[in-house]
Design a protein around this nucleic acid. Structure first.
Lengths: 164, 164
DNA sequence: GGCGGATATTTCGCACGCTAAATAATGCCG
DNA sequence: CGGCATTATTTAGCGTGCGAAATATCCGCC
């Protein structure tokens, strides 16, 4: 659930930035989902299929890390994909705790079937900016992200020391 | 599910921007959730409680619109909140299709208990930018969002006309 | 060799979140 | 007045998404 667009009329810079971010994020998810629907996949399933196609087999943990989700979430996604015969699980021989996720022929066919990224719209939007604007955007957004990350880490450390 | 950070090494501008957006969005949700947890609420519940506190009673549709979710989703959230005695439903007298959602005393107390926005971290991060950077960020992000919106609307119109 | 702590995955229970279909009430139009 | 499209909400079914606990291995160390 996105945080609320709290103030009704005058929006602060923070609110405007947040609103844009929420909009862009939501839209990127919606686009993925839409694209996926055409191949009878869900958004996450499309993401997984494309990831495996491009990178090759991945352990479940590697996969979760890449799609930024918890292992338990990905277990569910893979369960359903296995049921649909899109991927298979294969126990690693070196480390029997590890499970590799592999595309099946059907999964690979589907991956190829799907044009490219749903990111084309974003690419288009970014291309409508001037080169210097793109550079600024990348630079500033990156700065904000790093700054937030620092603050979060600091607070996490604090509450850890309080808790523990 | 966030779109994948596709390329392993060299990241395009699009990817970098998207990655930052995904990070910031995810983080803002996490912060809301964290803040909510202290009052034994979920993220969306905190959002609703704060919204009702600041704006007053809202119909279910108005509420869904404001938190950018489907009515059916909000029905569920309100069900659980009603169960916890945080809000009550009240049928409108003018239009008996409409249900107003009202804070209970307990809900109001909780709302007051919770400091402010979880957005403070973002505010801090934005304040670490120079004034001109903030201005640029607001301007450029807004531009990208508007551009994406236009493209999406155009495509929606097209596929509508195709579909019938 | 085996014990104890780490690591990889799964299971469980719950809360979103969405779409499609059902239900209920309005309002308009002839 | 009666029917019919519209609108507000709910229900049903499914797929994430998370945190905590359970399982199965692995690894280092005595």
């Amino acid at each position: 659930m996105p945080p609320p667009p709290v103030s009704p009329e005058i929006k602060s810079d923070v609110d405007q930035v947040l609103e844009a971010i929420i909009y862009l994020y939501t839209e990127s998810r919606r686009l993925t989902k839409e694209l996926a629907r055409r191949a009878d996949l869900t958004g996450p399933q499309l993401t997984v299929v494309k990831m495996l196609e491009q990178i090759g087999d991945l352990s479940l943990s590697e996969l979760s890390e890449r799609i930024r989700a918890q292992n338990s979430t990905v277990t569910g996604i893979i369960d359903r994909m296995e049921r649909e015969n899109l991927v298979s699980r294969e126990r690693s021989k070196e480390d029997r705790r590890v499970v590799y996720i592999k595309l099946t022929a059907k999964g690979r066919r589907l991956a190829e079937e799907i044009p490219v990224e749903p990111m084309e719209i974003f690419r288009g939007a970014l291309e409508s900016l001037s080169a210097s604007e793109v550079r600024d955007l990348v630079k500033i957004l990156g700065k904000v992200a790093r700054r937030v990350q620092q603050t979060v880490q600091r607070e996490t450390a604090e509450s850890d020391s309080v808790k523990g």
